[in-house]
Each structure stands twice: as C-alpha cells, then as structure tokens.
Amino acid sequence: MSNSPAAADTKLSPAFGRFSFSLRDAGTLIGLVVIMAVFATLVPGFLSERNLVNILQQSSINACLALGMTLVIISGGIDLSVGPTAAISAVITATLLLSGTPVPLAILAGLGIGMACGFINGVLVAYVGLQPFIVTLGTLSTYRALALIYTGGNPVLGIPAGFRSLFNGNLFGIPMPVLIVAVVALAAWVLLKKTPIGEYLLAVGGNEEAAYVAGVPIARTKITAYVISGGLAALASLILIGRLGAAEPILGNLWELDAIAAAAIGGASLMGGKGSILGTILGAIILGTMRNGLTLMNVQAFYQLLATGLIILVAMMIDRATRGRE
C-alpha cells in the first residue's frame, strides 16, 4: 500500500486539532453572538468598548472558578465547595494583610489555603472513596463554618491599597482581573491539551476502569483537579477582595452554581470525560452578558434569575439535540 493517502489524511486533521476550535465551541460562540446581537438592538450603547470591557470584568471571577470546575468535571467529579473555599482564603489573606504581612506572601498564603481545601476534597474522593458530590457538599458547609468561626462572622475591613492596586489596575487598557483570568485560561488550555495530566483527566472521567487498567494514576489525577479548583477559587476571592477592599466570611455564596453553569454551557459533560476550556470561558461570558444586558435594561433581579435559568436549560437542550445525531 502506498503511504501517501493515509499520510495526507493524518496531516489534515491535526491542523484542526491544534487550533482546537471544535464544533461544540463554535456552537457556544454562536450562542454568545446571538445573545449579544439581541442586547445590541435592545440596549443603546451595549456594544460600546467600555461596556464590553465591563462584561469581561464582570465575568472574570466566575470564569476563574469555572476553569477549575471544568477540570474537576472532566475528571468525572464536581466541586460544590468553591464558594466557601474562596471565603476562607479571602478572610485569611485579608487578616494577614492587616497584620502587616508582605503582599506577595499573603497572596501565596491565600492561594495555598485554597489549594489545601482542594487537596482535602481530592483525598476524600480519591483515597477514602466518597462520592464527589457528597464530599464537596460536606466541605461546602465545613469550610463556610470555618470562615465564619475564624472571623466571628464579621467582615475583615480595610485591606491595604498596595494589595488592591494589583487587582484594580489596567494594563494596555484591559482590567487586571481580565488579564489574570486570560493567563489562567491559557495555562489550563495547555494543561488539558498538551500535557499527560490533561490526558489523564480526560481518561479518568471518560472511563475510570479502563484508565486504571492502562496504568493512569487515578488518585493523583483526581487530587490534581481538586487542588487546581481550590487554588482558582482562592484566586477568584483575591480578585474580589481587591476590588471590594473587604473580605466577608459569607463571600462566594452560590458561586459553585454559576461555575457549573458556565462549564456546562461550554460543553463540559457532568458524566465526565468531556469539556472545553474555550467553551467554559465563552460560557462564563454568556452568563456575564445576560446579567449585564438585563441590568442595563432595568429588568428586575427576579427576571434576571429566570433568564439565566432558561439560558442554561436551552443550552443543554441544544447540546443534547446535536449530540443525538452523532
């Protein structure tokens, strides 16, 4: 057999693989464009540069959480504890800053606390063998309680300007939170597409039994996902307290739901084994756009909630319908 036709075959497809712009991501992007087009006709000035940057800024915290959530979901798990993880990390970082700890050290401590919370989740899932939903439901309450106990329920006020300026500035006209999340997204993309860890995440979520027989380090892979999720929850909380100047122990309430929604809209399958970094980012922007547009239209909060819920359901139905034809 001549090699050339087969070689041509295999040369074509990786080109698509490298840009990794899947059909599913294209669908999410179309969804975003449609939603934006609708708001553009309804709200004057919706497409102004300032408002678009605003949308990105407003989406950044959820996008940050959703990236970690995507990796956990791909591994076949779920992380319900991201909000309380963020809260613990926020109040500890804020306390450290107030006690005069140097800013870089306080940031490292905050991220470390988040990763430790994730590590506990991961160990309970991977070694103790509990179900991810139950583990993180338990730590959802536990971590929240710890944050409340630690602060006595009071907010930590007066975060120094040196810390806040890190997260409030602009670089080339782009807000720092957006840049930070963009860098994180790029790193997550490389992790998922280019490293053995990424393949292990997809394999463990795609078929854990087969991955085990093929020698994939199951426990290490799962723990990695939860540690990253915890770390990114902490990062999201740092962005938030940088903006607000205060850390509340009740911060991050219901964050997990938005993060799961963004990942699901972006194509992550809650059965595991599937998910897209680009899709998740687009999913987070879709949710941010909805909120921004409806607020500009002065729609009541109740209806905003309704619209968000419907968007999630419609996205999932479209997803189901298109996958059914495969």
Binding site: P196, E199, Y200, L202, A203, G206, N207, E209, A210, A211, V213, A214, G215, V216, G273, K274
Partner: peptide, 20 residues
C-alpha cells in the same frame, strides 16, 4: 468497560499507558 476511553481518539487510547 476496561479497555477504551470511548470519546478519546484512537491515538490517545494507544498512548495512554506510555504518555510519559
């Protein structure tokens, strides 16, 4: 159940045990 990761490519399924 124990052999394949269904949604992944045949290449990745082949390489899974020796990605390192």
């Amino acid at each position: 159940r124990e052999g394949i990761i269904p949604v992944r490519s045949v290449t990745i399924n082949m390489a899974l045990a020796s990605l390192g």
